[in-house]
Design a protein around this nucleic acid. Sequence first.
DNA 1: TGACATAGAATAGTATACGATTATACTTCG
DNA 2: CGAAGTATAATCGTATACTATTCTATGTCA
Lengths: 261, 261
Amino acid sequence: MELGKVYARRLQSLRIDNIIVYDTDEFIRGKVMDSIKQIAERCADRSHSTPDFVAATLREAIVSGAIAPGSVIRQDTVAAEIDVSKIPVREALSRLEAEGLVQFQRNRGAEVAPVSIAQMRELFAMRERLECLALEYSIPNLTKPDFVRARAVIKQAKRSSDPVELCRFNHDFHEILYSGAADGLLRDTIRRLMTLAERYIRIHLRMTGMSARTNAEHKELIRLARDRDIDGAGELMTVHLAKAAQRLARHFEKQGFSPAG
Amino acid sequence: MELGKVYARRLQSLRIDNIIVYDTDEFIRGKVMDSIKQIAERCADRSHSTPDFVAATLREAIVSGAIAPGSVIRQDTVAAEIDVSKIPVREALSRLEAEGLVQFQRNRGAEVAPVSIAQMRELFAMRERLECLALEYSIPNLTKPDFVRARAVIKQAKRSSDPVELCRFNHDFHEILYSGAADGLLRDTIRRLMTLAERYIRIHLRMTGMSARTNAEHKELIRLARDRDIDGAGELMTVHLAKAAQRLARHFEKQGFSPAG
DNA sequence: TGACATAGAATAGTATACGATTATACTTCG
DNA sequence: CGAAGTATAATCGTATACTATTCTATGTCA
């Protein structure tokens, strides 16, 4: 399949500097579009607009690694596959570009944004700063039900081993933790960064699962939040994220930026 | 003109909570589209794609206040005015939505995002955190030519009194300061935040001009950067931005969220 | 044989056209 | 006279169709 060819050509350049290459087995076997169709069906929540739906589908496809970094997304192909015209596809791609998941090359279409250890570090550094800020805004306004929900999420995470699910629980947990802050620019930005981070986290989780320490840290975060200890929670969040970034970096460095599926 | 009517109707709701209302004289007189045409001519750098061009035009129109917060952007009108079809206009609006400058209401078009003191504070708090981080990345890599350029920008700012120009100089200054950092997610996010901040800064500058203290602080920032004093620069940046936010908040609170042109 | 030019195919980007939704003005009824 | 309902106009959203650009494969010349 064509996409496989494109990717095969890019494989070398992807190895050049600091780039992580996904497990491309499925990709090269040409199952990409099949999986996109499947993802589309899962995302087919018609409460949203068509571009929302397309964007959700492609976002999941990129984050999950179904479409490999560096590969080109053919607008016609996607449009045909999920049975819409090119216009909503283009709008979806526009959004994904703003989210940092794809990059348009003029008259040459949209490429899936590359992944790199450097970017991953940058990402987590930004999260440290912004999520501490979010804690400052949020903690004073958190209520009992929030803590209850957060603990429930942790429990679910303990029971699960599916990386996709675990990522969602991780998302949910952080989301609850910041739900005391107004839903504005800050939380939006954090969400965007978490989505980008997921591209790295999922690979790692697929290998190791969610560590017990992560769950312990999450629990401790709740305790500190409940005690309204903003400084303490901020410090723990900082090390929590720093450690996560460090773990990921070690993982990918050890793998030599090679297939990590 | 229709847009004027729309805005007139929204005027009351805009006053409800924490909202700053622009001077809408020109707007109500129906000069909006004229000014958009003018802005378009200024933005007509054909090195970019059509949606880029449209986005740049609308961005400037929104940031400058030519299109007031809360008003609805009619796709057909914009398309006709700058002589393109609706599709690139919609793509441009998609991007502006991602940037936080407009909000789509399904089947009702795109509204210019509201402005509020609360958002302004959030904005500057985020900038504090992220720009300090950028300083950490950048300062070790800054070179003599960077400092020279930064000083040149300050000199230009001293001579100018046009708020648009002053904002650009401010932009340029910060951009140079972070140019030692790789041009990735962090700098992109900062740029986005600076653009949003401009909506507030321009109004303020129109009243007061660039304060001498701002220029002094900029100079001091360069000195600290040259001495590779990351902590010092970070601290100064924090107070620099905090003070700016405080000035703006006082200004808009005094104005009682009323016209500030 | 290999670099370069050229024709054709594939694809991105945009305009036009149309169906669906929402706003507006008018009419009708209580 | 005001509220509700209906008809009409305006506008959004998307599919279709066309143009311009880029990619690819074939052929030509050094």
